[in-house]
């Protein structure tokens, strides 16, 4: 039994299950195995009954799946590749289709990629040569054409902390994208139907293009930011844009909280922009029926209206406050 538990522990560690959980799992198995022994099962019968430790550990890791996706940690992800970063990262180019991907950073000197899912890894091209990270799904007619057949796949890319990535380009079709704690000169993300979540990003320029996916921006400092969307909604919190902030949409609504920008230009057909504690120096609206509505505590900070080119839309600044008080 000891041997069984030891190898189970080893396998669980390999799969990045937390120590606390491992302790609990081992205790449970110790209990169950003693019951089986008391019933008169032999050691070999026990392995037969409970399964090879390797298999048991994998099943446990698999059943952790849902939790993993929510918390975004890597414990049931499989390590794919580690690439040493010696002279910085000049470029990161990622092209995917339906895969979910998370970018994050950690205190390491390498780029590490984890994956989960049973898609064939040979479908992907991955290299890091002279400062350029390239990660692409190989174009393959049947795969693109029958994209509904592609399996659930999730990647995590971990960059070294405190490294500024020169150019960061991501492009995918339907996978969700989660970008966290990245510093880059120029960050460019595009997706058709995937959702995009961007947190704790520092960048000089930012360009995000979505069609129907939703966008969440939180705690970002971006010099110049432009966002293109068609029907997706946008939720922006704690954003600092030192220069221009452009939003081009069609029907999606935009919510901005606790943010500061220089000039904010909002172009839409029918989407609305609702801001609270949103302090742009100036604002421009171009819409058919879309409105801008800003409601701030500090009314001493004036917001200049630069341009209002709209058919039936309105700009209201601190209008609702009087009603509330």
């Amino acid at each position: 039994m000891k041997k069984y538990l030891e190898s189970l522990k080893k396998e669980l560690l390999k799969l990045r299950i937390s120590e606390q959980e491992i302790e609990e799992i081992l205790k449970d198995h110790e209990e169950m195995i003693s019951e089986a022994l008391a019933e008169g099962l032999s050691e070999t019968e026990i392995v037969e009954k409970f399964g090879q430790p390797e298999k048991v550990a994998q099943d446990i890791a698999d059943s952790n799946q849902t939790e993993e996706v929510e918390t975004g940690n890597k414990r049931d992800m499989t390590l794919w590749k580690t690439m040493n970063v010696e002279n910085g990262i000049a470029k990161t180019i990622v092209n995917l289709v339906s895969e979910d991907i998370s970018y994050e950073s950690a205190n390491t000197n390498s780029i590490t990629i984890y994956y989960k899912g049973d898609e064939d890894l040979s479908l992907y091209e991955l290299s890091f040569i002279s400062g350029e990270l390239v990660f692409k799904r190989r174009s393959n007619f049947t795969n693109n054409f029958f994209s509904f057949r592609s399996r659930d796949m999730h990647f995590i890319v971990v960059f070294p902390q405190k490294i500024e990535i020169g150019e960061f380009k991501h492009n995918s079709v339907s996978g969700d994208i989660d970008i966290k704690s990245i510093t880059s000169k120029a960050i460019e993300v595009s997706s058709t139907s995937g959702d995009l979540s961007v947190t704790k990003i520092v960048a000089q320029t930012g360009k995000m293009s979505l069609v129907s996916g939703d966008l969440h921006l939180d705690h970002c400092i971006i010099e110049r930011l432009s966002i293109n969307t068609v029907s997706g909604d946008m939720n922006v919190n704690n954003l600092v844009v030192n220069d221009e902030f452009r939003i081009d949409g069609v029907s999606g609504d935009v919510k901005i909280n606790n943010s500061i920008t220089k000039m904010t230009a909002f172009k839409t057909v029918s989407g609305d922009l609702d801001g609270t504690e949103f302090y742009p120096e100036s604002i421009a609206l171009s819409s058919v029926s879309g409105d801008i509505n800003i409601c701030n505590q500090d009314q001493s900070k004036a917001i200049r209206v630069l341009k209002s080119n709209t058919l039936s839309g309105t700009i209201q600044i601190n209008h609702n406050r009087q009603h509330k008080d």
Binding site: I25, D28, H29, M32, K49, F50, G51, K55, V56, D59, I60, D62, S63, N64
Partner: peptide
């Protein structure tokens, strides 16, 4: 049996 325990735990 090894399929039951992970489910029980989950």
């Amino acid at each position: 049996e090894n399929t039951i325990y992970p489910i029980l735990r989950r």
